[in-house]
């Protein structure tokens, strides 16, 4: 008992020290939380790998899907400064549009699907990408003209999210859909890890697309303009950058990435009209964890959140794993609201 009290006392001193540090030396606190969180995530990853490598692998697969969604979300936030609550449902629309366009035609190697799926993914990317641009013109552009606040934008996106889901529900109904039925055996890898060829496809596609996003953001004129506008809208305008053009590209890229994420999620499990909405919390948690507006933050955040969620199922009921994303989100907001890679304000 006495030992417990002593320990509680120590914990209190640590907490008060941290609170004092935050008040007296915000710069030191900031550096400390930055390094501390990295150490914490590193330690957690090592611990997770030792506990259950299989869950870590599943976490990486889901993390890839979340990352594609979160990068789009963070780009849209960076450029237009609002939380796009329709992003999950844009993913879902992509999944269903690919389902619509998918003609099962054999299979590529060990994968469960063939070139028909590649074509379906392209159809989904183009339609969701172009669709987002059209919706921006119809919904968000008039709001921008009126100078509406961020809350109006967020609520408008929520309305769109509900609309998308209702439309899909109307067309395909609530029952789950599957791209390819049948049993697809997993490969046995060393250390008792099992992975399906389709899941390797998911990770590979994500790696390829993230590399493409990086080339775009850091090597092309429009990508640099996107980063510039996310830094400082006024200065971008006075430099002669056309905000409407940048916004169009942002939706095109964010929308097509969301579509791929949706298809990959459909390949990993199945298609349901609420598949996107139920991913919204991990998406936001990943974005905020990594630092809103930062693409590598979104990638890191997605991996941390997804691996944590999966590994947590060792101890808690999988039904509660969404709570893990929530807890991480709250912790991050309490300790370091700007996230791992976010800019100081």
């Amino acid at each position: 008992m006495a030992e417990l009290v002593a320990r509680a006392g120590k914990a209190r001193t640590l907490l008060t020290t941290l609170v004092m540090l935050r008040r007296e030396r915000p710069d030191l606190f900031d550096a400390a939380t930055g390094i501390g969180l990295w150490v914490l995530f590193g330690a957690f990853l090592i611990f997770a790998v030792i506990t259950d490598l299989q869950l870590v692998v599943v976490g990486i697969i889901l993390g890839s899907i979340v990352a594609l969604g979160a990068i789009g979300l963070t780009l849209v936030y960076g450029i237009m400064k609002f939380a796009n609550f329709a992003h999950g449902d844009m993913m879902m629309c992509g999944a269903y549009l690919a389902f619509f366009a998918f003609i099962s035609g054999g299979s590529i190697g060990p994968l469960s699907f063939g070139y028909g799926m590649i074509l379906a993914i392209l159809v989904a990317m183009i339609s969701v990408g172009v669709g987002s641009v059209v919706i921006d013109r119809l919904v968000y552009h008039p709001l921008r003209q009126r100078g509406s606040g961020v809350v109006v934008f967020a609520i408008a996106s929520l309305g769109l999210a509900i609309t998308f889901r209702a439309l899909i529900l109307l067309w395909w109904g609530p029952q789950p859909q599957i791209y390819v039925t049948g049993i697809h055996p997993a490969w046995d890898l060393p250390f008792g890890v099992k992975i399906k060829p389709d899941q390797i496809f998911i990770i590979a596609t994500t790696l390829f697309l993230i590399a493409a996003v990086y080339v775009l953001l850091f090597r092309t004129r429009i990508g640099k303009a996107m980063r510039a506008m996310s830094d400082n809208l006024e200065l971008a305008r006075v430099s002669g950058i056309n905000p409407d053009q940048v916004i169009m590209w942002t939706w095109l890229i964010g929308g097509s990435l969301a579509a791929v994420a949706g298809v990959l999620l459909g390949i990993q499990s199945q298609l349901t009209p609420d598949m996107g909405f139920s991913l919204l919390l991990p998406l936001f948690a990943a974005t905020i964890l990594g630092g809103i507006g930062s693409p590598h933050g979104a990638l890191t955040g997605a991996m941390v959140v997804s691996i944590a969620q999966q590994v947590s199922t060792s101890w808690i009921d999988p039904g509660y794993k969404v709570a893990v994303a929530f807890i991480l989100l709250i912790l991050m907001l309490a300790v370091r609201p700007r996230g791992l890679f976010g800019m100081k304000t």
Binding site: R227, A228, S230, D231
Partner: peptide, 14 residues
């Protein structure tokens, strides 16, 4: 009056 996350050269490109 500069883009903080862009490099010096990228600022000039903008």
């Amino acid at each position: 009056n500069v883009f903080p996350t862009l490099t010096v050269q990228e600022n000039l490109e903008m």
